[in-house]
Design a binder for these strands. Structure first.
Lengths: 204, 204, 204, 204
DNA sequence: GATGAATGAGTCTTCATTCAT
DNA sequence: GATGAATGAAGACTCATTCAT
């Protein structure tokens, strides 16, 4: 009769350990479904079932199906940004190559960990309204990357950042899809591509 | 998204021009919906409506919803492969750089044309069973790319092909998403990345 | 994912006789449920079942449950206003008493016809957003009643109209609830109450 | 709205003042929800929240949701009957008009106090099984009204009582809905209607 | 061939109620 | 006694697909 507003947040964040286990179980169940079946097969009944909770319980924590996706996506990004921030902060004295070395390692590990999940969430983000915190995290990431490149005198740092991010992500995803195992070798190839990219003759 | 009868083909391929117009109208309507709303919002009733035909007519041409997607995906790939094949065939004498130059141009044009559509179909392909002809086209493409690289003495040509394809695709998509307009500049950046990649010190 | 706007109208009004029968069957089924079970028991599955159609069919015609209620309510009001308008128009030369005589007759007939239905819809109107056409019909009714009273020099015609309407309605409902059968006698009592009301000493 | 166990009573009547406060808080929260949102939006979780108690506590006092409604309804009726009984008892020597004067005043005050609440409870009573005590109170009220009218030689006293009750109630509700403020004027109009009603030529 | 009314399995979501802590 | 996490039956609504006209 009345319209609920789209809540951008879980209905309640768990405070006790029982709740927390339930909350996490729901997210993990959703993640597994996304990995094996994709977005289209994600339905709340299935999530609840795989999480071993009742459908009612699921809705105590998540007001809509989308919030589950948003929370999952948020966690992944938060996790990545945390690691990347740490690398950039701790390695300010290092050469750009060394910093990239680290960043690529982290990115490979993250995407190899659950490549299909990353892919689905990435797709979902494109068609779902981005939740504010998530958008913020994305902006932060871009800002830091730009700052890093600027500090190393890379021209057009925004575009360069975007390009290298896209490049790395594309190669990692393709490798993961092809079930390539050797992360070292992959990292090496990415670094070469990046070096080539960075050493390009400056436009004017 | 799961199949009842895995009919790999439209019920009938249009032979007369009136039919053909209907057939195409349905595909185009589906494409537009995918671009603006994404996979989740693609439904046959809406497609029929936007195509200006009745739902009954739609089902005369396409036995299931998935076949619409498959046909759309197939057309895109067939289109791209056709162009790429032509380039590779016609430029056998050219330097690798010149061939790549052309390939990148084609890829940029294709993806800039309907970037969201390309993205959605790509995602759909990952979770839908690939139709035989489509899988075949993909294999063909990979084979030709490998052959090209082999002919130019690139080591690990399969992997290199995959990497460069992924790299280019990632950069183009990111640029399209950011609504970058200058295709020339984008092509240049991709070429530099590729050159860097190819000039990497050989492993051993 | 996206929010549907509250449609104030049936999704489609029937044009062919098959549709019309379905449309009416749904409304009639809803009316019967409201009469026997009340608003709380009105659910779309039950309505569809009693109407002998599938749930899908119901939703082809009515986008939400509320629209069924609104349409029912609208029909009742439209029906009553039509009759009342005719009386007021055709009896302009008559005494007020004679006009009231007629109006009371119509009101009794309407409310005795389906008293519980009238009651439920009245209640629903109080808590549901009034649909524009319905609000308009109500305003029309009040306007005409006021005009009638004004033409007969009744002071405070708006208030008098409201009072007499409420009075009549209250008495008719109570009589219907008590299963009183003699409509003549009831009409007589209402007329006396109204005469008493109208013959009151004017304030000042 | 259907009953599992037709417990006609709250689980426990509060004896200590702390309990009583909780009991009352629950009822008051329910009343406020009924006023602002109507029957459909009354749900136990919301009641508990607005009452500032846990859902568990609510169920310690009220075994089902219906009992909350029943208790609320009962209180209102008990309250009114008490006042009306007192008037009838204390004014046995007065003229009928004077007694009515008082009764109307009380009725107006009651209904103007919380008109929407009165309306909702009235509606609920029509579709909920009447709890025995409440039915008894209603019978008592009718009996006393009939006795009063009989004592004053009004013919058909049951029907007359019903009519006048309905009339008054209808007018008061309509006035409350229209947010009429002047209770004196309203009372006067009701009295005139009643006088007209009572002074009607006797049938035969 | 085309139409569009009809179907019903499938999903999302709510809310009365229970019960372990 | 109080709490609030958990339950699951029930109800709103969608959409792929069929089939009578």
């Amino acid at each position: 009769m009345t319209f609920k507003k789209p809540l951008l947040e879980p209905r309640k964040r768990p405070t006790q350990s029982r709740s927390e286990a339930t909350f996490d179980a729901i997210l993990e169940a959703a993640a597994r479904i996304l990995e094996s079946e994709g977005l289209n097969s994600l339905n709340t009944n299935l999530v609840a079932e795989k999480a071993g909770v009742s459908i009612g319980t699921l809705y105590q924590y998540f007001p809509t199906k989308e919030v589950i996706l948003a929370e999952l996506s948020l966690r992944m990004r938060r996790d990545l940004l945390g690691k990347i921030s740490a690398i950039i902060e701790n390695r300010k004295k290092d050469t750009l190559e060394e910093v990239f070395n680290q960043l690529i390692k982290v990115a490979i590990d993250r995407l190899f960990d659950r490549p299909r999940l990353a892919r689905v969430l990435d797709y979902a983000d494109a068609f779902l309204p981005l939740y504010e915190e998530e958008a913020e995290i994305t902006r932060q990431f871009e800002k830091r990357l730009t700052a890093l490149l600027t500090a190393h005198n890379i021209p057009n740092p925004e575009i360069a950042g975007r390009d290298m991010n896209a490049m790395a992500r594309g190669m990692i995803e393709a490798a993961a899809k092809a079930e390539e195992m050797d992360r070292e070798a992959l990292g090496l190839r990415i670094r070469h591509a990046m070096n080539g990219y960075l050493s390009r003759p400056r436009k004017g």
